[in-house]
Nucleic acid binder design. Structure first.
Lengths: 120, 120
DNA sequence: ACCACTGCGTTCAACGGTTGAACACAACCT
DNA sequence: AGGTTGTGTTCAACCGTTGAACGCAGTGGT
């Protein structure tokens, strides 16, 4: 999974659960803590995400990752771009599956021909 | 691209063009020469492929990678396995595209609602 | 008031997969 | 012969990735 992928998925998860931790993100995405931290810093640097620390009524410290307006906007266009690349990948995969199926068909035909020949 | 993937694709290319070189394989698969060499050696070790050197009528030396009977057999089952994993991936991708589409729809609806609100 | 403990983000040395320049060898060419 | 070309082979260097270890802040027990 490349960094773009990770960044995009991080943004989506943050939007759904702003109080998610880096360790949870790492576990959810199946990547290392270091990578999540790296991508998150990149997002913060671009101003798409802000780490805020605050107290609740309980007086307990909380962390939350918030999408900035710029982040929301970036997410929309990123989703579109992401979707396009996925559709492309989908088509590529469809073609490959077709190819593999055809190949398999040929192989099994050859095999059955050999069987017939050997049985006569 | 992982080693299994590379090995499988190498076998397919070899079957089509036994006289292909490692450099051509590397270029075709978009991986390094070293990796091709490594995978090819693994295939040779397993007895699926044999590098043969021979002279033609022209007396020029040629190289060719030939699939052994064991290699042909292994290829068939590998194709099936490969196909299964690709179909799985395909389904996964289909779901993700659906999700992304839905998400995008929600986002744009929210955006248009904001537009309406601001224009009144 | 203190101290141990927990849970957070942050760091970075170590790891491991990947690369492709350099090599050894064989055959060809002049 | 000696230089050139086209192979497979090697492996030191590179670089992205990892997660243990760290510093810090709040919590809870004494």
């Amino acid at each position: 999974m490349n960094a773009d992928d990770v960044r995009f998925r991080i943004v989506r998860l943050i939007e759904q659960r702003p109080e998610i931790t880096q360790r949870e993100l790492a576990a959810e995405l199946g990547v290392s803590l270091g990578k999540v931290n790296y991508c998150l810093r990149a997002l913060a640097e671009k101003g798409h995400v802000k780490l805020t620390r605050f107290r609740r009524r309980s007086n307990k410290m909380h962390y939350a990752y918030l999408l900035t307006p710029a982040g929301v906007q970036a997410k929309a266009s990123a989703t579109l771009q992401f979707l396009r690349s996925k559709v492309e990948e989908y088509e590529r995969l469809r073609l490959e599956i077709e190819e593999l199926s055809a190949e398999l068909r040929v192989d099994t035909e050859q095999a059955s021909q050999r069987d017939e020949a050997s049985s006569t």
